[in-house]
């Protein structure tokens, strides 16, 4: 599978990288990280142009994020969020998430673009559904995506001949951080739930 993806990069160039980052930011399965690294590696060998690789990846990422944000915001996501917030079970969780996005939404968007990248589409969904200010979302989004692109393309550029190994290792570390963050959040929620129950009794 990896071989076919790398073949697509050498065959179709930056277009593949652009499509991969659009898909990734829309929450669709896409090996964007590997392809950005491949772009960096082929830039190091002068098969692709470094700045074109960076630009294609960045524009794809921003287009994907903005599309998802507006799709949710204009496509009924706001009403769905309000409906869920009014429900007994999920309501407390939704309200807590909304409060968090209100206070730390910029950081959540920024960090989810590159450090907790598997969570990025969910943060974008929440930002759109809670009507996060577009300017705030865009500023955090663009700076985070710029860092994401710079990080992966640079790694590909530096570790030209080892992109598969680096990509698998880094993908696992990012997965570890994201799953760890979700575990921590769920544990805090569980602890609070137990505390509330104890207070009620």
């Amino acid at each position: 599978m990896t071989d076919l993806l790398l073949l697509a990069v050498t065959d179709y160039g930056v277009l593949v990288i652009f499509v991969a980052t659009v898909m990734s930011c829309l929450g669709l399965p896409s090996p964007a990280s590997l392809l950005m690294m491949a772009g960096g590696a082929f830039a190091a060998t002068e098969d692709l142009d470094l700045w074109t690789v960076c630009l294609a990846a960045f524009l794809g990422a921003v287009l994907g994020d903005q599309s998802l944000y507006w799709l949710v915001r204009r496509g009924g996501g706001v009403r769905l969020w309000k409906w869920l917030s009014a429900r007994k079970g999920a309501g407390r969780l939704m309200t807590a998430a909304e409060g968090f996005l209100d206070r730390r939404g910029g950081w959540a968007v920024f960090l989810s673009r590159w450090l907790f990248s598997p969570l990025a589409p969910y943060v974008t969904l929440s930002a759109g559904a809670t009507e996060m200010r577009w300017g705030r979302f865009t500023a955090a989004n663009m700076s985070g995506e710029a860092l994401w692109v710079a990080l992966y393309v640079s790694l590909g550029y530096v570790f030209t001949t080892r992109i598969e190994e680096v990509s698998e290792t880094l993908g696992s570390v990012i997965g570890l951080l994201s799953a760890g963050l979700v575990t921590l959040a769920l544990w805090l929620l569980y602890r609070q739930m137990r505390q509330n129950r104890a207070d009620d009794e």
């Binding site: 080892r162 190994e165 290792t169 696992s172 570390v173 997965g175 799953a179 979700v182 575990t183």
Partner: peptide
């Protein structure tokens, strides 16, 4: 938590290969 553990093992495995 299971997923976190899985990613930890995967990271160690691929880092070793690297």
């Amino acid at each position: 938590a299971g997923l976190t553990l899985l990613f930890l093992l995967r990271a160690i495995f691929f880092a070793t290969i690297w």
